[in-house]
Design a protein around this nucleic acid. Structure first.
Lengths: 151, 151
DNA sequence: TATTGTTATACTCTATAACTATA
DNA sequence: TATAGTTATAGAGTATAACAATA
């Protein structure tokens, strides 16, 4: 029996639990605005990377073009994004943020930051620093090793 | 401008990223068995806490009784769980794991442990220990502060 | 009258496949 | 022939509300 391994299992359990709790802690507040995680993801992507075609959105979000159609339909109905024709390619639809969409992103990011401050309030600066570098290592492993698993 | 706050924002971004990546890293492997996160959650709960009524399952999983009906229908069709009449209360249905259900849980936990070993491989024991205690603090904040947000 | 689990209905996210318009 | 976005269809998770059987 290796006690070291138990520590690792415990750390992973906590990572899982935080992952499961962190999303809802931030996204539950969106429900009143008829927003959802997938929709805020679309709007946020446009805020980060600027206007793009639906095809580019599908690639950026890692989903199908059909899914993008639905998400753009929903956020367009909410007045957060706008469809415009592409200047040269008449097949293509350009999706861009409206002013209301920009407001929604900034309000959501402010809320996420408040949650962050609250969640990390129990740690001093040194602990936050150590946590952050450990998480960076975990992230690298997760991203690097994940593709290998598929093969 | 407070640089300390940037460290905290960075740590939170990494927590979010890990939360978003960790789930799929473990649950994608279930798709071939027609299992899903919600279904494995039900089966795992029965493995942890033993047989219980659907009402108790709804409370334990934090969802509606209607949702439990669907999840039990699906996992029962897969042969992982079984519905039995309650010995005294004829309204109640007792849900319990089958042998195949137990096998599915242990196989899934073994897979999750392999992912854990891979993900934490970049950290030494001391770092794992520090990470784990920092995560415990974050978890406490998350669970304690979350209810306060609602009020 | 309250509780258990169901049917009925609806919304969201997601996917594949077939189709239209355009390149 | 290939690409962009759509309609058609489907499965999964989730919710509320109405209902039947039982307590």
């Amino acid at each position: 029996m290796k006690p070291l391994h138990n520590h690792r299992a415990e750390a992973m359990q906590r990572l899982f639990a935080i992952g499961a709790a962190l999303g809802p802690a931030v996204t539950d507040s969106l429900a009143t605005q008829r927003l959802t995680p997938a929709r805020i993801g679309l709007v946020q992507r446009l805020h980060t990377d600027g206007a793009m075609s639906q095809r580019q959105l599908a690639d950026a979000l890692g989903c199908t073009p059909r899914n993008v159609t639905g998400l753009v339909d929903a956020t367009e109905a909410l007045g957060l994004v706008r469809r415009d024709p592409h200047p040269t390619d008449r097949r293509t639809t350009l999706v861009s943020l409206t002013d209301a969409g920009t407001d929604a992103v900034t309000a959501w990011q402010a809320h996420a930051r408040r949650v962050a401050d609250q969640v990390l309030a129990g740690l001093d600066d040194r602990q936050v620093h150590d946590l952050s570098s450990a998480l960076a290592s975990v992230l690298n492993r997760l991203r690097a090793g994940y593709e290998d698993d598929q093969s």
